[in-house]
């Protein structure tokens, strides 16, 4: 099957893919460099001058530095809601992979349900109000944890199933209690999946729009996706500012992509194969 790379196919595929996938990004970047008048034309043209810095300053300082607050909120939301479930999900994945009981079927059903069924939003809001977490950052953190658990559990369970059980048994004979087996033997071995898990979930949470829209009303707690949504109406005519905003909030996931490309792909396939 080894033959030389097809140059012919490449010559067609590379420009086509660039047109389809890269031009929209080029458009975002170009527009972010333009001034208001030129941006309004919505065309794919070279910027008249370098206005990016002015645009950034204007976007960031507008509405009392709201974008900055939003970045802080999004960071807190992402970091907290991605790290918390790592241990919880790994614990579930561990017992689920190791112990066969008649409950396993039900538990797996609930996990799959969490992966497929959309959350019931209004009752969730009602519940958050009931426990006093509505409109505060803690609420959505816990919400994102709950929504992210099924994926993490499936990922961990599949990986733990590949760790030989004899390792646990050797540790048990060495005198390890259940707690030791998990924290000293299993958890350290989960590092590669944990990286995948954290990367995939953090991109998901950072880019999440729907959940903050429902559970984080008000400007004080806005996340970056919400600011973009709010600016969409505010900057209706200032396309340069709108696209500067898009550019700014696309940078963090893009960095993640550059550094963790392989982990993301691994997560996509691992989660998918099981799902």
């Amino acid at each position: 099957m080894k033959s030389r790379p097809s140059i012919f196919l490449g010559i067609i595929a590379i420009p086509v893919s660039a047109l389809v996938f890269l031009v929209p990004f080029a458009f975002i970047i170009l527009t972010a460099f333009k001034n208001k008048q030129q941006a309004t034309l919505l065309d794919f043209s070279w910027p008249d001058g370098f206005h990016l810095w002015n645009n950034i300053v204007e976007v960031v300082t507008t509405r009392n530095w709201m974008l900055l607050t939003a970045f802080i909120n999004s960071t807190i939301l992402t970091v907290a809601s991605v790290t918390l479930p790592v241990i919880f999900a790994a614990m579930v994945g561990f017992v689920l992979a190791r112990r066969k009981t008649r409950w396993n079927g039900l538990i797996e059903f609930l996990i799959l349900a969490g992966l497929m069924i959309p959350p019931a939003v209004v009752p969730t809001i009602w519940l958050l109000q009931g426990i006093g977490l509505f409109g505060k950052l803690h609420g959505p953190v816990l919400i994102e944890v709950a929504y992210g658990l099924p994926f993490s559990i499936i990922l961990y369970r599949a990986f733990i199933a590949t760790i030989p059980r004899e390792l646990d048994e050797a540790a048990i004979i060495d005198g390890a209690r259940p707690f030791d087996v998990f924290f000293r033997i299993i958890l350290p071995l989960l590092w590669p999946v944990t990286v995948t898990n954290i990367v995939v979930q953090s991109v998901g949470v950072f880019n999440d729009f729907t959940n903050p829209l429902y559970y984080l009303p008000g400007n004080a707690n806005a996340t970056v996706q919400l600011t973009l949504y709010n600016f969409q109406s505010q900057f209706n005519t200032s396309y340069n500012l709108l696209f500067t905003n898009i550019l700014l909030i696309t940078i963090p996931p893009l960095l993640v992509f550059l550094f963790f490309n392989r982990h993301i792909v691994a997560g996509m396939t691992a989660g998918a194969v099981k799902g």
């Binding site: 479930p85 579930v92 561990f94 017992v95 019931a120 009752p123 919400i143 658990l149 259940p178």
Partner: peptide, 17 residues
């Protein structure tokens, strides 16, 4: 070991559902 996950998931996902 199921408890912490079950608690969060049960309260914030299953109960509203």
């Amino acid at each position: 070991f199921f408890l912490p996950a079950a608690l969060i998931y049960g309260v914030l996902f299953l109960a509203p559902t």
